[in-house]
Simulated scan of single mutants.
Amino acid sequence: MIEIDGSEGEGGGQVVRNACALSLVTGTPFRITNVRGGREKPGLMRQHVTAIEAACTVGSATCDGLTVGSSEIIFRPGQVVAGEYNFSVGTAGSTGLVLQTVLMPLVFADRPSRLVLEGGTHNMLAPPFDFIAKSFLPIIDRMGPTVTARLVRPGFYPRGGGRIEVDITPAPLRAIDCLERGALVDRSALAMFAGIPPAVADREIVTARKLLDWPDEAFAVRELPESQGPGNILLLEAAFEHVTEVVSGFGKLGVSAERVAQTAVSRMAGYLASDAFAGPYLADQLLLPFALAGGGTFTTVKPSQHSYTAAAVIERFLDRRCGFTQLPSGAHRLDVR
């Protein structure tokens, strides 16, 4: 049984999610102590419990200590079974993070699966649906499997209530190299809002337009039904030939619309100023499939603490090493060996 200290590295829920996925793929049980020990409120939160429950369901697994607030779990994997599954976080907890937990095990299954995930789709503490659909899943498709995701209904924090549907057609993961973005194809800035004054989204777009040298037609505002709010997100998208970067800024009480836009634009500018393939959040997501493929290379702007922690967990389960090397350009290259 693999022993993991959940307070090491970034000390968050990613350790739990990656360990569950790796356990189901390899058939190796694990114990995590000090779950989310690096967080202000340690222990399992509702969305982590849902993610582990999903892993237990698709992988015929058992888990001791599976309660909200638990600081220790013991996970014993079983046989992964493809099928149709519906998982509800019950709050605005991220549907995308639940998907992250079960996607790779189902990619290795013997037939297609369909997931219905309900909860948060646009949550400031997790990649929004748009990032998953446009940045992450196209890379998985290039590696062999086919994964399509549909946003049926958005779910903002704190209300939640969102719904996504995901179809997974398994195939062997092949190692690929992702070193070049290719030419810039398109750019867009979209402010979505529901149940809040329209002026908030308008101010985000006005600020983004001032700071980005993008054509006027790249900027848009979209109002969602009031019943889906309150909520607000600014999505900046830069589509290249081989990858799409999606940067998000979330509106919240006490933070001006201008500040939301400025922060998002700053992050996008950092990516555009680099020649790296993956932004920091995409790099976090790619480590697991690249490791399971047995190799591959990608470049990223700068590895996050999430990435280093993910690499450490991966190395506990697989005979693989995930090494980051800084390049003369300032970007970093990830090699799976």
Rank of each mutant, 00 (worst) to 15 (best):
M1A: 09
I2C: 00
E3T: 15
E3Y: 15
E3L: 12
D5T: 03
G12Q: 10
G13N: 09
V16M: 07
V16N: 07
N18R: 15
V25E: 01
T26S: 13
T26M: 10
T33K: 08
V35T: 06
R36F: 12
G38C: 12
R39F: 02
K41L: 07
P42M: 08
M45A: 14
M45Y: 06
H48K: 01
V49W: 03
V49E: 03
I52W: 01
E53N: 05
G59R: 02
T62P: 03
C63P: 05
C63G: 05
C63R: 05
G65N: 08
L66C: 15
V68F: 02
G69S: 12
S71N: 10
I73G: 10
I74W: 13
F75D: 09
P77A: 03
P77E: 05
S88L: 05
T91Q: 09
G93M: 11
S94E: 01
S94I: 00
T95F: 04
L97R: 06
V98S: 08
V98H: 10
L106D: 07
F108C: 14
A109L: 01
P112I: 09
R114V: 15
R114A: 12
G120W: 02
T121W: 12
H122V: 04
F131S: 00
S135I: 04
P138F: 04
P138G: 05
P138H: 07
I139N: 00
I140E: 03
R142G: 03
R142H: 03
M143F: 03
V152Y: 04
R153Q: 13
P154T: 00
G155T: 05
I164R: 09
I168F: 02
I168V: 14
P170D: 04
L173T: 02
A175H: 02
L179W: 00
L179F: 06
E180K: 11
G182N: 04
V185S: 06
S188F: 07
L190K: 12
F193Q: 10
I196Q: 03
P198S: 03
A199G: 07
A199Q: 14
V206D: 10
T207D: 08
T207W: 09
A208I: 04
R209H: 13
K210I: 01
L211S: 03
D213Y: 02
W214S: 12
F219V: 08
E223D: 08
Q228Y: 15
I233W: 02
L234N: 00
H242N: 15
V243T: 12
T244E: 06
V246L: 15
V247Y: 07
S248T: 02
K252I: 05
L253R: 09
V255S: 04
S256T: 13
S256Y: 14
A257Y: 10
E258Y: 04
R259Q: 12
V260T: 11
T263Q: 10
V265K: 11
S266Q: 11
R267S: 07
R267W: 00
G270D: 11
G270Y: 01
Y271T: 12
L272M: 13
A273G: 15
A273V: 02
S274C: 06
D275Q: 11
A276S: 11
P280H: 03
Y281C: 00
A283Q: 05
D284C: 14
Q285V: 02
G294P: 05
G294A: 00
F298E: 11
F298W: 08
K302W: 08
H306K: 02
T309S: 08
A310F: 14
R316D: 01
R320A: 13
R321E: 14
C322D: 03
Q326T: 14
P328H: 10
S329R: 09
A331G: 04
R333I: 07
R333K: 13
